[in-house]
């Protein structure tokens, strides 16, 4: 059964139809890549899923529960974790405290004024850091980490909320090629084990074709292709969007 169901999602900004009638599903343990050229509507699409933008039309359901138009906080509580294109972690806290912060929120302890936060859910936090390979750095301030390590911390933070769906906005942006493959291999392994559904956008096609189970392609706000990587790779519409059709020069040549 699919975890995320998106039906007929539509959003306009002024006269521009940024996203037009987009529908797709993501299943448990599946990595679905959302790709498309700049301006295709990927970010708008993403922000409608995570609650930052309210869709004009259409619905988003997570395991049968409607989360269309809810606030980001509510959507997170319903089981949607996320990582950001430009990492967003807490620079004045240690790596472990960053993960503990999520755990405290998940256990609804945010208005506890008394017990020391740093000694809550320590084992759980360390266990998550172990899984992303950051346990040795658990006590370092998050503000001084290398960028690739911050990405790993973000992944641990996203998993800490035990999400059913993970939204990853360009998870490997700004990383070295080797780190990219490692991070995505790690993500793939973790989501497979936990049965989480992942939707990610990505510009690096090596990452996409190496790790996505399925790919959907957006162009000018509409879905133009969907399927396993080889199918999408050979799709003539997709090739045209990414490479151009050559029609302009063909015409010039004919003239």
């Amino acid at each position: 059964m699919s975890i995320l169901q998106v039906r007929d999602l539509t959003k306009s900004f002024g006269g521009v139809q940024a996203v037009r009638g987009v529908s797709f599903e993501v299943g448990a343990g599946e990595l679905l890549a959302l790709i498309g050229p700049n301006g295709a509507g990927k970010t708008t699409c993403f922000n409608m899923l995570n609650g930052q933008i309210r869709p004009d039309r259409g619905s988003v359901t997570l395991e049968g529960r409607d989360l269309t138009g809810l606030s980001p906080r509510r959507i997170w509580r319903m089981g949607v974790g996320r990582t950001f294109q430009i990492t967003a972690t807490y620079a004045s806290m240690t790596v472990r405290e960053n993960v503990q912060m999520v755990l405290l929120s998940r256990h609804r302890r945010l208005f506890d004024l008394w017990r020391p936060a740093a000694s809550e859910y320590v084992d759980e936090a360390l266990d998550l850091l172990e899984q992303v390979g950051m346990r040795p750095q658990a006590d370092r301030p998050c503000g001084v980490l290398a960028y690739g390590d911050v990405k790993r911390v973000e992944l641990a933070m996203a998993l800490a909320s035990e999400p059913r769906l993970l939204l990853m906005d360009e998870p490997t942006a700004g990383m070295a090629p080797k780190e990219r493959i490692e991070l995505m291999a790690l993500t793939a392994e973790l989501v497979r084990r936990r049965g989480v559904a992942v939707l990610f956008t990505e510009h690096d096609m090596d990452v996409v074709f190496a790790h996505a189970h399925r790919i959907i392609v957006l162009s000018r706000g509409a879905l133009i292709a969907s399927g396993p990587p080889p199918v999408v790779r050979d799709d003539p519409d997709v090739q045209e969007v990414y490479l151009g059709s050559g029609a302009m020069f063909a015409k010039e040549g004919a003239a």
């Binding site: 967003a88 620079a91 999520v102 945010l110 909320s161």
Partner: peptide, 18 residues
């Protein structure tokens, strides 16, 4: 901690239910 979290990164805090 949640207060500092909101100061450090409002974006992330919103995304983890603070």
């Amino acid at each position: 901690y949640a207060l500092r979290a909101g100061r450090d990164s409002p974006l992330r805090s919103d995304a983890i239910g603070i």
